[in-house]
């Protein structure tokens, strides 16, 4: 296990070398946070029937906006294609031959990176949101803790999806098309673009049955108290199990392909 911890630690430390990029990221996320908050507040302002739209009040919606911006970097909403690069360079063959789990190798690095992004980008972005807007906060210490736990869970689900998208690189030459579609699936079905509850009923029911919900919507619902702690985290764990199994299955198929090609 030690080796996975070391890998995570290295990935975590690596981020500290790119401070200018971190500042730039915080700035960008905050600008979008301010803009989206203004849009939603304007919509709520002239909303005639009551204060809440499908369970979201104006304050809760703005809170959702800022959590969403803070999560962009940790869960890598816009995609991540590091494994594809190693398929291109051929480094993947040696990575697969290393005496450790290929999945665990990448997952531990991704978790280290995610913790770094959470501290260096997520938290500062959320603090900026809290300074300028009247946000809603988790009422109890239990909810705070549940929210903090839900983030690594979200990262793992998102990682499994990204891992599988990368392994597609074994079958296609150019990943850009897939990348685009993968990004939009996560953007819409995770609730990043719009709270899932606001989609038309049929669509909402479909999105609620997909794993992507665990990436953005569930942490938000746990923070806002819309989801029970046990139900919320339990659902995330369920999706972690399913997605991990799927990722391992795809990996074994991909490995067979590597063996057949002779590396």
């Amino acid at each position: 296990m030690r080796i996975y911890f070391e890998l995570a630690l290295r990935a975590f430390r690596q981020l500290f070398a790119y401070q200018a990029a971190m500042l730039a990221g915080i700035f960008t996320n905050s600008v979008f946070g301010v803009m989206l908050s203004a849009v939603y507040l304007a919509l709520f302002d002239s909303h005639s029937d009551g204060t809440s739209v499908e369970g979201f009040s104006a304050r809760e919606t703005v809170t959702y906006v800022w959590i969403g911006q803070a999560l962009i970097a940790p869960v890598m909403i816009w995609g991540w294609w590091e494994i594809i690069k190693t398929i291109r360079t051929g480094a993947i063959v040696t990575d697969m031959l290393k005496p450790l789990s290929f999945f665990g190798f990448w997952l531990s690095r991704d978790l280290g990176r995610a913790v770094g992004h959470l501290l260096l980008r997520g938290v500062p972005t959320l603090i900026i949101g809290a300074l300028f807007y009247d946000l809603v906060y988790p009422g109890t210490p239990g909810r705070w803790i549940a929210f903090l736990v839900s983030i690594p869970f979200a990262v793992i689900v998102s990682f499994c999806f990204r891992f599988m998208m990368n392994l597609w690189g074994f079958w296609v030459l150019d990943h850009r098309g897939i990348a685009g579609i993968a990004t939009v699936i996560v953007g819409v079905a995770s609730g990043h673009l719009l709270p899932i509850a606001w989609y038309p009923d049929a669509l909402r029911d479909v999105f609620n049955m997909l794993p992507f919900r665990a990436i953005v919507m569930l942490p938000v619902e746990i923070w806002l108290g819309q989801a029970g702690i046990v139900e919320g985290l339990g659902l995330q764990v369920f999706w972690i199990l399913v997605m991990t199994a799927a990722a391992h299955w795809l990996q074994s198929v991909a490995e067979r392909k590597v063996v057949v090609q002779g590396g």
Binding site: L43, E54, W198, Y199
Partner: peptide, 8 residues
Amino acid sequence: AMFNRFND
């Protein structure tokens, strides 16, 4: 979907 939930 967003427009659908609001009036103006």
